[in-house]
Design a protein around this nucleic acid. Structure first.
Lengths: 193, 193, 193, 193
DNA sequence: TATGAATGAGAATTCATTCAT
DNA sequence: GATGAATGAATTCTCATTCAT
């Protein structure tokens, strides 16, 4: 059973997360002070330090949490569908994430600029569902003689490509908006796999 | 003739650039104070504000300057060589930049995290040599029926891909070091064009 | 019961008020830096911003406080006396304030140059005693058919007159010192009421 | 004959005056830097110091100039008219100034808050026309046995009264707007003389 | 006279962190 | 665990004034 005290702790921590997310998104990270976070969260300044080391600690945890969540959602959704080919499956997965970020531009901004592979590797260890991305990809290549490492690297390259092109087109509309870029991006990915 | 005063101004401005670059690279942007910059540059604090609005102003100008410079160098070097094919030419150009950043990791870190396409578009307008990248690419496609815009977008995609993969492998060794990644990156580019 | 913390806060705030007053009076407002205030008050610089927005915030509050205090003192003293006529009562009240400022020239200087009617209206709302001035005046006019508004305006005119003449004669000895000006000022007021 | 050099000097000085006036009026004195003034005037920073000691030097001269000018205008206009009585004449004179400031609120603000009697006495010495105010007043009292000094003081009192009431009603609409205050102000002045 | 780049002291303000309650 | 007043170093930025040209 979770005690009342325990629940209260969780609530405080969560309100800190929620406040920090809101502020990082809207004001930017540099412009957000711990003071702002605790005020918005409705807790005392000292309380922040009971849960987090500093601003970058809560930022990292936030990024990790949000990005894992989105990836997981995309995986779950992809698994629910049936596809004719691996290509179709992969593009559906990527498209799902792109559509998500189209609706959540600010979150994309926050995540993309601050998601380091260091954080991501942690997620890879801790969150089982993330492995599923790799598994899907590996299944797609199981008939080829490509060494396992090269498969991994190719996956990485595709994800980097999709990530950087999406970021640029969604956030900056450069070189064009995401809907114009998608066909070319998808064509390019098809060529790669 | 350039007057003594004019020469003196240039010197101050340049020493500010040099100092800021050194500090941004080694200490990081957040950790560098205007105070640090002027001290290193050997000018008075007020002098900084004579030339720049704030820290981010000098940063933007620095990024623009350094990245244009590198691109230009790569273009010039590529033009000096003779190639059998467009593919060979493009890869030489990309390789030149990758090799440059392999030797200047800190500069890559500074530029990649802070180069916005907004800055870059400015460079595209102001620095003639940058157009040359596009021209090279266009010549490569002159026999195809691809519309001009799609050529542009494809170039963009290739540069984004090369950029993000290089950054990740040079700076973070993820998913592997740059020398291991290069063959796969180049293969991928070949598939795309 | 007032907690220790609460008492401590009050002490800090008061020492800031006292220090600011001393400095504004003796050095002038422009010449007083926040630094001077906190040093004199014996608190940390940040503490100032815990209580006040900036220099003009503490100034306004100070002016409001001091002027309300003096007005209140004058009202209380006037109420203690018995007068033959309203004229006598009003002149006693005005004289009380003039005499006070004769002894506190610097305070007069500070208040007069910075007391805006905006601040004063706030005092009128918040400090009950201030209403008493108006009540006294109204009683003096209760037999006349003058509309209420005109009574108010006449009071205003008399206070403006007394204020500006006192300021000029006490601070600048213009056109003569206050003791020479008083008979004429009082004659003038008698003519008005 | 005025040399070209001489004319040029005057132009610079005048443009400094004009710029300072504009800025003092619109931004306030504290918020106006010498930098702002020279920029607006289109002269070099050093030039300012060839003509003025500091910000308060140009301010004083400006105030003196503007207020003398207005007084003079009022005097000239008053002299052009014929009046039935001295009372009528004085009120016309005061009304002229009030109407002027009704149209130039910002100038009133600047002048009233910064016109010290010290400056004004200087004007009294230097500008002949100003004596005319006193002369007009004295003529009004020439049949009385009032000593000269008391006449002067009464004039002073009336001007202070008119000044402070006008300022308050024009700038702050306190206790009412100037058009509502005028009848009472004029009645009061009538009672005084 | 006129210029305007350079100065650097100093003013305002922020903010992470501590710690007594 | 939770609080929030207090701290003061650090940072940004301003601006009057000088002086070589």
């Amino acid at each position: 059973m979770v005690s009342k005290v325990e629940r209260n702790k969780r609530e405080k921590e969560n309100s800190l997360y929620a406040a920090a997310y809101e502020l990082f998104i809207n004001k930017g990270i540099n412009e957000t002070a711990i003071n702002d976070i605790v005020k918005k969260a409705g807790v005392a300044k000292g309380t922040f330090y009971l849960y987090f080391k500093d601003k970058y600690d809560i930022l990292d945890k936030l990024i990790l949490d949000k990005s894992s969540q989105i990836l997981n959602e995309a995986i779950v959704e992809t698994r629910l569908k049936v596809f004719q080919s691996f290509e179709e499956e992969l593009l559906y997965f990527i498209d799902y994430i792109i559509e998500y970020f189209k609706e959540n531009k600010l979150m994309l901004k926050l995540i993309y600029k601050n998601l380091s592979w260091g954080i991501f590797k942690k997620a890879y260890r801790d969150y089982d569902e993330i492995h599923e991305i790799y598994n899907m990809f590996e299944r797609g290549y199981e008939d080829t003689s490509l060494p396992r490492e090269d498969i991994e690297k190719t996956l990485f390259i595709i994800l980097e490509l999709a990530g950087s092109v999406s970021y640029s087109s969604i956030i900056l509309n450069e070189p064009d908006n995401i809907d114009e870029m998608k066909p070319i991006l998808f064509d390019t990915i098809k060529k790669i796999i």
